[in-house]
Structure formats: C-alpha cells, structure tokens
Amino acid sequence: MLLNVRVDGAGARTVVLLHGMTGSAESWWRVAERLVAVGHRVLAIDLPGHGLSARDSRLTIDSAARSVVETVHAFAPGERVLAVGHSFGGMVLAAAHDDLRPALAVHVDAPLRLAGGQQRGQLVGFYEESRQQRTVERLRATRPHYSERDVAVEARAAERFDPATAAAVSCGPGGLWLPGPGSIVLRADPSDYVSSEDVRLLEARGVDVRSVPGAAHTLWYSHFDEFCAALPEVFTVG
C-alpha cells in the first residue's frame, strides 16, 4: 500500500524518516525542521496502522518494508535517499534495505530481533492499554523532556494508533533484521534495545555504531543537539 507522507522542503537530497511503534510522521517535527533548514527535502512517513496511513491486521515487518519502498519510489523516483528509522521503523528500514538501496541508512535505537509467535488477543489488549495511557496529562507527567508540542504530537499519534495492526507484527514467525554494511546505528547509552552483544555483531558486519550517553529511547526528544551532532552525514547542507 502507499502510505501517508508529510513532505517538507525542496532540497536536492531527500531524507526519509520512519517513526517507532505508537508514533507517527509528526514525531519527527523538530528533526524535519532542522533537515529543511540545512537544505534537504524530507519525507516523513506514517507506517501502517499509524497516523493517517491505512490499518493492516496482517502486517509483518516485511510487508511494512514493501509499503515503505513503494511509497518512497512514488515520491522520490530514481533517487538514492538518505533514510532514518527509529525503533520499529529501524527494523522496517533494515527489511527494506536491499530494495530501497539508500545512499545511507541510519537506525536509531532499533532492535535487531522480533520474537514472534505472540498471542493476538493479549497483545491487542496490551497495545490498547498503552495507547490509552498516552494522554496529554500522562505524557506531561512521565516524559519531562517533552516540550508541549512533543506532548501534543505524541498524544495525537496515540489516538490514531491501531493496536490490531501493531499486534499483527509480533504474531508472525519473528526473525532477525540486520542493518546493511555501511549503515549507522545510533543508540542511547545505556540502551534497552541495542545491547553490547548487538554492538559487537553490528560492528563485525561493517555497521558504524554510535551512542548518545544518557539519552531516552527517542533520542531527539531528550538530546536533540547531541542527536544531530552524532549524524553529520545527515545534518549537513544538501
């Protein structure tokens, strides 16, 4: 399926942004503004079941990747884009790598593995409870590093988030999705998603692993300047 895209800027280079689970294209608003300011065109994509994209109760990492590739090719035909994926979006980016063939792929605190085989009803209930907890009031109380705009954006993303689509991803067979050689992995330090063992595996594969000490899982919300400074290949004049 073609996915909903927020298009900003008109630079010669295009940067594709893929959000994490329960987020949306809007989650990147501050990052997109910086990218446009340095001369990039930005495609921030709503993944299936998120934002304004269609729901899919049979979604898998690989089918989400195919939708991303189709969408990017529709909006940036023939272009080798820069691509940044956070968490779930980073896994989707890894699955899309061979077909997308980005000039550079950046995976932000993204897990490498999905266990799979989860019980659908329980997982839908878990995601529904998580969605209901992401209100403006709750986010203000639990995310002190969020600005008021961050709070509004993430609360709106939760309202639009489809638990059944999210649950489908973990109900399949699971698997391992590794960033391609030459990719960058930017992790929080410490990270609940990219372990020291993962770092050794990635570096042996030719992946450049970088860290932002003390950052939250959504690194750019808690450590925006450090996030940008860690990725000069992305935040440079196009």
Rank of each mutant, 00 (worst) to 15 (best):
Q118K: 15
D225Y: 06
T60P: 14
L100E: 04
D99N: 14
S27E: 04
S195E: 01
R6S: 14
T135E: 12
V151F: 06
A158V: 09
V237Y: 05
S191E: 14
W220K: 00
R210Q: 00
A166L: 10
E154L: 14
A83I: 04
V42T: 10
W177A: 08
H107G: 02
W220Q: 05
D8Q: 13
M91I: 14
Y127C: 11
A166F: 10
A76C: 08
P163N: 08
D189H: 12
V106H: 12
G238W: 02
V169D: 13
Q119D: 15
A168Q: 15
A74G: 06
G175I: 12
H73M: 09
S211G: 07
R101D: 13
R13D: 06
V209W: 12
I184A: 02
A216R: 01
A204T: 12
S130G: 04
G172V: 09
I61E: 05
F235A: 02
F224P: 02
A96K: 01
G90S: 09
W220I: 01
V36T: 09
A155W: 10
F126H: 13
T142P: 07
T142C: 03
R205C: 01
A37V: 06
E226Y: 02
S27H: 07
W177I: 04
L47C: 00
L43A: 10
P190N: 10
G180V: 01
T60M: 04
G89E: 07
L17T: 05
A95H: 09
L82Q: 10
G89I: 03
G206Y: 03
A94S: 14
A65V: 12
F227L: 02
Y221A: 01
L186T: 07
A167D: 12
S24L: 03
W29I: 09
H50Y: 07
F224S: 00
R101N: 11
R55T: 15
V42A: 02
L3V: 04
H223P: 03
A158N: 06
